[in-house]
Design a protein around this nucleic acid. Structure first.
Lengths: 227, 227
DNA sequence: CGCCCCCTTGAGCCGTGTCAACTAATGTGG
DNA sequence: CCACATTAGTTGACACGGCTCAAGGGGGCG
């Protein structure tokens, strides 16, 4: 089952100003959201699933005490809104990190249901993996693993595997990886100092994929970055 | 939708020695498994979902490097085998921690499917919560949270809320909570020293539910156990 | 141009993992 | 049923990774 998604495009900025229930615009049947706009609010009843067509979203869960955690980033091809399989009640915010568009999946046919189940299963797998990473692997390993994942995802969507923009801020990324922002920053600096990456705020270039992979996989070996 | 499950019973020890594909016995249409017997092996193709009728199971995922993590404990009423919703391929072991029985759910009717989706969703929620707990809360808080959960689960099934047997060993529990066995042991000792628990290997008694709840929820408050 | 926020870097502390020794429990074979 | 062997749990000492607090750049947006 393949799904067509447009490549990332900055030309979607202007859209009709038809307001749906959300603060969103439409174009070519897709919902357009700008940076920081919510696709879903925690507590919302999800009315239908969405297919991410372009851009990036993050989903977060918020706790009473004020702290929130980043559960995932969603890129074109991802399906959102599996809450509809059960009570349709979303416990999380889904926010655009940049100008992004989604396609509403109106008909909850069996293919769509299957996609939703699959996406839920993937999320479960991701959480399991994340738990494992956070329990057993260092900051650098987790960071490297994330960069490799993201790199792969870029490649799969037809972009450069070794040079790309990180669409999320440090705070979001550190939250996703289960780190303090300072720790993430230090990790990036370490990888930079070892000539594995070039990094400036958003722009990222992988200089030494080989060693990056080593860092991601090994905890006890020489792969650990001394200092 | 309610499902009838028998209370935990030690009278199921002897069963017919009819061997199914697994090393298991049958009684009254239920599969009986003894301590350490696998209901599902990692890599197995799950043939049908199971409803836990009595006893306890743990499910674990195993990694190449030899380390494994405990993903969950399953008590009567829980449904296993949601893998069947997708590729039916299990990535985990499901093992009986004690003499236990399950009912095979042959007909994958819509009710069963719904149960499976629900169970998957619950697992996802649990993982999210666990991630949050491990990121933000101390050993004692996590341990207290677990004990409260387990206590509630006991109460829901008609047993004492304040005195029960922990069916899993320290190693399994520490794995589940994301702790080293030694750290778990220290946590238990601390709760014991503060007269919140009585604990001897398996047997556990909650002496001060009030303070236990405090420990579970607060990190920065006086609830933290000094020493 | 200047404010603000994000990111980076430094210093110090604390919790938890690790290693090691000891004790308690469990199981096994005679 | 006992003696022994093996595993599980507890406790202590110690090291170190990552969080916190604090201060110093840098870039974007009004």
């Amino acid at each position: 089952m393949t799904i067509h998604t447009e490549p990332y495009s900055k030309t979607l900025k202007q859209g009709y100003s038809i307001r749906t229930g959300l603060a969103a615009r439409m174009r070519a049947g897709n919902l357009i959201l700008r940076r920081h706009e919510h696709l879903i609010h925690a507590g919302d009843t999800v009315r239908s699933p969405y297919l991410v067509v372009s851009g990036v979203f993050k989903s977060t869960i918020n706790y009473e005490n004020g702290d929130s955690q980043v559960l995932g980033f969603h890129v074109p091809g991802d399906v959102l809104g599996h809450e509809i399989l059960l009570d349709a009640l979303s416990g999380r915010d889904v926010v655009a990190l940049d100008t992004s568009s989604v396609r509403r999946l109106d008909h909850l046919d069996s293919d769509t249901r299957c996609l939703l189940i699959e996406s839920m299963c993937n999320e479960s797998r991701r959480l399991t993996r994340q738990l494992h990473l956070e329990r057993k692997y260092s900051t650098d390993a987790r960071l490297a693993a994330f960069l490799i994942d993201y790199s792969d995802s870029q490649a799969r969507r037809g972009y450069s595997r070794y040079e790309f923009i990180l669409p999320m801020g440090r705070r979001d990324l550190s939250g996703y990886l289960g780190l303090a922002p300072e720790t993430l920053s230090r990790g990036l600096s370490r990888l930079r100092d070892h000539d594995i990456l070039m990094v400036s705020t958003n722009h990222l270039k992988i200089l030494d994929p080989e060693r990056l992979r080593n860092v991601s996989g090994m905890v006890t070996d020489e792969a650990r970055l001394t200092c």
